[in-house]
Amino acid sequence: MISPRSHEANTHVAELQAALAAHGIILPSLGVDLPSVVQTYRAPLVELGNCNLDTARALTAALRKAAGR
């Protein structure tokens, strides 16, 4: 059975993946940090993982565009 914390974390990761994909950005190692899901004293963490320079540039450009710069 999936815990509510795990379900919530997975939902947010899926939403982040979709939002990034809308800008053509794919982070292959994006996911939930599993050890943080089982902890009871803080919210689960999201692993953004590694990306190459092209992906980093695309992410920077998307964030700047969203900020109006």
Rank of each mutant, 00 (worst) to 15 (best):
Val38Met: 12
Leu63Gln: 07
Ala18Pro: 02
Leu27Ala: 02
Arg42Ile: 07
Ala43Glu: 11
Asp54Gly: 13
Thr60Ala: 14
Lys65His: 09
Ile26His: 01
Val32Arg: 10
Glu15Cys: 09
Ala19Pro: 04
Asn52Cys: 15
Ser36Trp: 00
Gly31Thr: 12
Ser29Gln: 15
Glu47Pro: 00
Ala21Met: 07
His7Gln: 15
Pro35Val: 05
Val37Asp: 04
Arg64Met: 10
Leu45Phe: 14
Leu16Gln: 01
Leu20Asn: 07
Leu34Arg: 04
Tyr41Gln: 14
Asp33Arg: 02
Leu16Phe: 06
Ala56Ser: 08
Ala9Phe: 02
Arg57Ala: 12
Leu27Arg: 01
Ala43Lys: 09
Ser29Asp: 15
Pro35Cys: 04
Gln39Pro: 01
Pro4Asp: 14
Leu45Tyr: 11
Met1Glu: 11
Ala43Leu: 13
Asn50Ser: 13
Ala18Asn: 09
Tyr41Glu: 15
Arg5Ile: 02
Ser36Met: 07
Ser36Ala: 09
Leu59Glu: 01
Gly68Gln: 08
Glu15His: 13
Leu34Trp: 01
Met1Asn: 12
Leu30Gly: 14
Ala56Lys: 02
Gly68Lys: 07
Leu16Arg: 00
Gly49Asp: 08
Pro35Ser: 03
Leu30Ile: 14
Asp54Cys: 03
Pro35Met: 06
Ser6Lys: 13
Glu47Met: 04
Glu15Thr: 12
His23Asn: 14
Leu30Trp: 09
Ser36Asn: 08
Ala9Gln: 07
Ala58Glu: 00
Ser36Ile: 07
Glu15Met: 15
Ala67Tyr: 01
Met1Pro: 13
Val32Met: 08
Leu27Tyr: 02
Asn10Phe: 09
Ile2Ser: 13
Leu34Tyr: 05
Pro28Asn: 06
Asp54Gln: 04
Val38Phe: 05
Asn52Phe: 07
Ala62Val: 12
Glu47Phe: 00
Asn50Glu: 11
Ile26Asp: 08
Cys51Thr: 07
Val13Glu: 04
Leu20Ala: 10
Ile26Met: 01
His7Glu: 15
Ala61Ile: 12
Arg5Tyr: 02
Arg5Glu: 03
Gly49Val: 04
Ala61Thr: 15
Asp33Glu: 12
Asn10Pro: 07
Arg42Gln: 12
Ala66Asn: 06
Ala22Asn: 13
Gly49Asn: 02
Pro4Tyr: 04
Arg64Gln: 06
Leu30Arg: 05
His12Asp: 02
Ala62Ile: 11
Pro44Gly: 14
Ala56Arg: 09
Ala43Gly: 07
Asn10Trp: 04
Lys65Tyr: 02
Ser6His: 12
Arg42Met: 12
Asp33Cys: 11
Leu63Gly: 09
Leu20His: 00
Leu34Thr: 11
His23Glu: 14
Val32Tyr: 01
Gly31Arg: 05
Val13Arg: 00
Leu59Asp: 03
Arg42Glu: 14
Arg5Leu: 08
Ser6Tyr: 06
His23Val: 03
Leu27Asn: 05
Asp33Trp: 08
Leu48Ser: 01
Arg5Gln: 06
Arg42Val: 06
Pro28Leu: 10
Val37Gln: 02
Ala67Phe: 02
Val13Gly: 05
Gln17Glu: 15
His23Arg: 05
Ala14Tyr: 00
Gln39Phe: 11
Ser6Asn: 11
Asn50Gly: 14
